[in-house]
Design a binder for these strands. Structure first.
Length: 582
RNA sequence: GCCGAAUUAGUUUAAUGGUAGAACAAAGCCCUCGUAACGCUUAGAUGUAAGUUCGAUUCUUACACUCGGCACCA
């Protein structure tokens, strides 16, 4: 998918197109007031105050038509530079522009404006020479958007669009959007029988169907196997806990709005847990630890419940109950670096093994000015942030630093991915935490016999299994690799009367795999089609030729070719594919 | 939660202020077959609750859920 922001020419084009949109809106709705109209990776948008008017479906073609008209008219786009004082005078009727001008740096004595025909907008530029160049654009979507992105503010009208240099590029882009819908995990999840939701069960509460659960279980076993080799100890803890537990951890104060409300039973108060840290802290606290025992790695595929805003729910990507591939690693301060490094290496290894390439790292740091959102201890923060940075640099990993995105208790490394439809989200995460062990008075006995407080690494490689399945379905377009596929091998006898017996024999010999024998009285072509539509990776066709030669013929998903092998060769081929997670 | 839009059989969808049409899937018959749909038959639907109306699936309102964004976030 193209990134408009990264292309200078397209970036200028889209920025100018945002002005064109604003001009058209102004023509149609003279009372319109404009906030900002930036370029984004998928084009541009403009935030507009239309008073009581709300943009509706029918308005979009009218605005597009007006844009085309202005473009055809072909006015030049002219830059002027004016003083701040002049700017304040020029936009005196527009409170949004006044707001922008006043927020500009005191040293910015010169402010630039761009005029095209009857429309002038405050803007740094650059822009294209003439509106004539803005020919191949499309308005894509519209919605409400809070002024300055703050939900306490008024809601403005936002219109999104995109502009290209040629019609072909525009059409290609629109086609890509259509294609993306086809690999949306919500569509694939339905088509392939992975998960469902049900109104009576409740929204945001997905249920995994047999096919989905095979994927789930396979991923669970895979990651737990990896963790075991690295010394993780797996536990099982309850999905709810006493409110006091969360008051002690601080989550009650900081996270209450994202939790389901507490329930009172026999004078005790409980909550569904939104995360597993406190439970794992209590497991650590269960026994005395020597510095020699650290790091202690407590892992769990753990169910959490979060009261997500209804508008945030999305398939199995964002839900109200999910299972984290969670672990808490208790270390001495000296072990932070090596252990963090080991977690990053585990993430890299898993991504490599699963052939995931489409992701980037973000290092989330605190905003030093924000003393409320972040635990106040400058020394701790500086040390923690430097350590994470050092590990990433040592491992030669590209990452983006995000100020003000850290957790309350410490900085974190996130792996960000982009779904087929919608905004990017976090898949894997590793967070450094100096606070929680203190709150629970966790200790270990150090060399000198003194009790010391351990540091905790919170980490999740798959993030949540739910979210990971959503991501992997979209990455593979539903054509899951053999090791994960709910049905691995589909056996189709050419003719039941003559070949079914042989097919059954082969099925028995492949009993280590998830094999389906399609013995329905249907034509071969019909069964073949279904095998492809169900995205079964390997289809075996067994007819007279195979019976006579005592071998098998198979076709791979996405291939037109049929290959014949002896059964032993075929099993070896399958084994290799599974081993390579291919 | 906020701003919009949508909700028709298991699924994808058509149409309408006056008996809701189709395709795939299902069931039955037929076909006995070499790599993406043989044919025929049957059964199956207007999210929920009010309102307007002689009559509502269609118009109005509320609720539920879904979708596109915003805000929030694994």
């Amino acid at each position: 998918m193209i990134n408009i922001k990264e292309n200078e020419r397209l970036s200028t084009l889209n920025h100018s197109c945002a002005h064109l949109l604003a001009q058209a809106v102004k023509h149609l709705y003279p009372e319109a007031k404009f906030w900002v109209g930036p370029v984004i990776s998928e084009g541009f948008y403009y935030d507009i105050d239309l008073g009581d008017k709300v943009i509706s479906e029918e308005d979009i073609p009218l605005i597009e038509k007006e844009m085309k008209k202005i473009s055809k008219d072909g006015k030049r786009i002219v830059r002027h530079e004016i003083s701040k004082k002049e700017a304040l005078e020029m936009f005196k009727d527009d409170p949004y522009k006044i707001d922008l001008i006043n927020r500009m740096d005191e040293n910015d004595t010169i402010i630039s404006c761009y005029t095209q025909g009857d429309f002038t907008d405050l803007c740094r530029g650059p822009h294209v020479e003439s509106v004539k160049e803005l020919k191949y654009f499309k308005l894509l979507k519209f919605s409400g958007a809070y002024f300055k992105g703050d939900s306490n503010n008024k809601m403005l009208q936002r219109i999104y669009g995109i502009c290209f240099e040629t019609e072909e590029e525009l059409n290609n882009y629109l086609q890509e959007l259509e294609d993306a819908k086809m690999r949306d995990h919500r569509k694939l999840g339905k088509d392939l029988g992975i998960f469902v939701t049900n109104d009576l069960v409740g929204k945001g509460l997905p249920m995994y169907l047999p096919n989905g659960y095979i994927i789930w279980e396979t991923l669970e076993n895979y990651i737990k196997g990896k963790e075991r080799k690295l010394g993780y100890l797996h536990v099982l803890t309850p999905p709810l806990g006493n409110v006091e537990l969360y008051k002690t951890s601080g989550h009650w104060d900081h996270y209450k709005d994202n939790m389901f409300p507490k329930m009172e039973v026999e004078g005790e108060e409980f909550v569904l847990r939104p995360m597993n840290c406190p439970h794992h802290m209590m497991i650590y606290a269960n026994s005395i630890h020597s510095y020699k025992d650290l790091p202690i790695r407590i892992g769990e595929i753990a169910r959490d419940c979060r009261f997500e805003a209804s508008g945030a729910l999305k398939g199995i990507e964002r839900v109200r109950t999910f299972c984290q591939n969670d672990a808490h690693i208790f270390v001495t301060p000296e072990q932070i670096e090596s252990e963090f490094s080991e977690v990053v290496n585990l993430i890299l290894e898993v991504y490599k093994e699963l052939h995931i390439t489409n992701y980037h790292f973000e290092l989330s740091l605190r905003d030093k000015e924000d003393k409320v959102k972040y635990y106040p201890d400058d020394d701790m923060w500086n040390k923690a942030e430097d350590t994470l940075r050092k590990v990433l640099n040592d491992l030669n990993i590209d990452y983006v630093e995000k100020i003000g995105e850290a957790a309350f208790y410490g900085p974190k490394l996130d792996v960000q991915v982009k779904p087929a439809v919608g905004n990017e989200y976090t898949l894997s995460t590793c967070q450094l935490d100096f606070c929680l062990p203190m709150k629970f008075n966790l200790t270990y006995i150090d060399k000198d016999g003194e009790k010391k407080t351990p540091v905790v690494l919170h980490r999740a490689v798959f993030g949540s299994l739910d979210r990971f399945i959503a991501y992997y379905l979209e990455e593979t377009k539903g054509a899951l690799p053999l090791w994960l596929s709910p049905v691995q091998i589909n056996i189709i006898p050419v003719n039941n009367e003559y070949h079914l017996e042989y097919a059954k024999l082969i099925k028995d010999k492949l009993s280590d795999y998830r094999v389906k024998l399609d013995d329905r009285e249907e034509k071969l072509g019909y069964k073949m089609r279904e095998s492809v539509m169900n995205k079964i990776p390997v289809t075996l066709i067994l007819g007279q030729k195979e019976v006579d030669n005592q071998n098998v013929s198979y076709r791979l998903l996405g291939s037109e070719e049929t290959i014949t092998l002896s059964l032993d060769e075929f099993i070896k081929f399958i084994e290799d594919k599974i081993k390579n997670k291919d």
